[in-house]
Design a protein around this nucleic acid. Structure first.
Lengths: 225, 225
DNA sequence: GCCTAAATCTAATCAGAGTTAGAATTAGAA
DNA sequence: TTCTAATTCTAACTCTGATTAGATTTAGGC
């Protein structure tokens, strides 16, 4: 039954597995997430990951089949964690909160998670578009599921009349998620704005930018609905 | 005078230079821009660039010192062209147009340029953050100058009372430029929205999201300043 | 205190991409 | 035509970073 007892039990099933290896494996993943968050997919080297994990490059291969497998697992985890967080935050809201409130909350959580809370999440936004086709295809499938979550929030807000039905839903999702992901690029580099400031502005743009408004012109006083 | 007649006259001064080499050099730059736009800095290989330029990898070195020099020139050109375009489009506007109109127009031009018009511009947004420190530092200096251009438009719009002075200017610039650059990542991959649709929404978010609005709560009628 | 499997290390190997040297070709002037 | 410099090609060479093999160490069960 022992099969190839040595090597290769990576994301596949693994026996009970001694907690020792279990731990090291986690440490390596964490280290990889950290390096990926800083460097992105292409520039992330095994030597740096190994060092961050307190081990040798060669030793990584005891826990993972290859560099690609290691990185892919980090990316999957990044998407998963973001999803879990956003969903949890929304579900914790009082039932009377409006769809747009929920969307705003999810967005703010997403932003904060990407920017300061999770190396795994940051690893994803820093790596988007970089991995080879097939890997990115798999990660992206999960990513789309996450996107659909936002889609549903948007759709609900439209149904509730909180978002102008004229608005292109797809483009809206891409723009707000995009602005968020992008922030992961420059935030920290020039730390002029805080996460909360960025979040506030983003929500403001969303809320006001998207509401159904009657007329167009007049700068003056306005208007009910 | 001939100096090192062979090699190395790259971005430095070059004599009158026969149009033949001049042409090939341009072809190589175009090819590199194309590959960079598709792959980004790290994944862009000389072999692919050479093939796109209809030549051999080794031949590139007659025209450029190194891969880095070639790529850096593409990136500089990308920033320069974007800047030139945005400025031209704004300066072509009638004098009575408002600052916010100008900002919107510049933004729309930027978006379209990145997305469909220029491989050079797209090469930049696909490569942001990837090149080594020193190279990116140089490109970024020029990039910041471009950013300042948007800053001035924003500042003017604030002075004109078209943008709420409460708004964090820096964050605003980052978010709108970010959403735009980001679009370069997904546009084409899932071509569900057209450039114009994206542009329309972006402008809408900007215009409405940013205007000075009196109170907060009441849905009802309101109020000057 | 041994014995075995798990876990890690070390040092060599491999592969891919940039780079270089020199030969070969091309284009234009004399 | 012929000659020369500009341009391009070909075939190594190098460097970097992932991968592998085997030796070595560690930890827990007997």
């Amino acid at each position: 039954m022992a099969a190839k007892s040595l090597r290769a039990y990576a994301p596949a099933k693994r026996q009970q597995m001694s907690s020792r290896g279990e731990l090291k494996r986690k440490q390596i993943l964490d280290a990889a997430a950290k390096v990926l968050a800083r460097r992105g997919y292409v520039a992330a080297q095994l030597s740096e990951i190994a060092e961050a994990a307190g081990t040798q490059p060669g030793s990584l291969y005891y826990h993972f089949e290859s560099r690609e497998e290691l990185i892919e697992e980090v990316l999957h985890e990044g998407v998963r964690l973001s999803f879990v967080r956003a969903r949890a935050v929304v579900e914790a809201m009082p039932p009377e909160s409006t769809p747009l409130d929920r969307l705003a909350t999810a967005l703010r959580a997403h932003l904060k998670f990407q920017l300061v809370e999770s190396d795994y999440a940051r690893a994803v936004s820093r790596s988007i578009g970089q991995p080879p086709e097939d890997m990115w295809g798999r990660v992206n499938r999960k990513f789309r599921a996450y996107g659909k979550f936002f889609d549903r929030l948007i759709a609900a807000a439209i149904d509730a009349g909180e978002i102008d039905p004229e608005v292109d839903r797809h483009a809206l999702r891409m723009l707000i998620i995009g602005a968020t992901n992008w922030a992961a690029e420059w935030y920290r580099r020039d730390g002029s704005s805080s996460v909360d400031e960025i979040g506030n502005l983003l929500i403001r743009l969303l809320r006001r930018g998207v509401e159904t408004i009657p007329a167009r012109g007049s700068t003056g006083a306005i208007v009910d609905v």
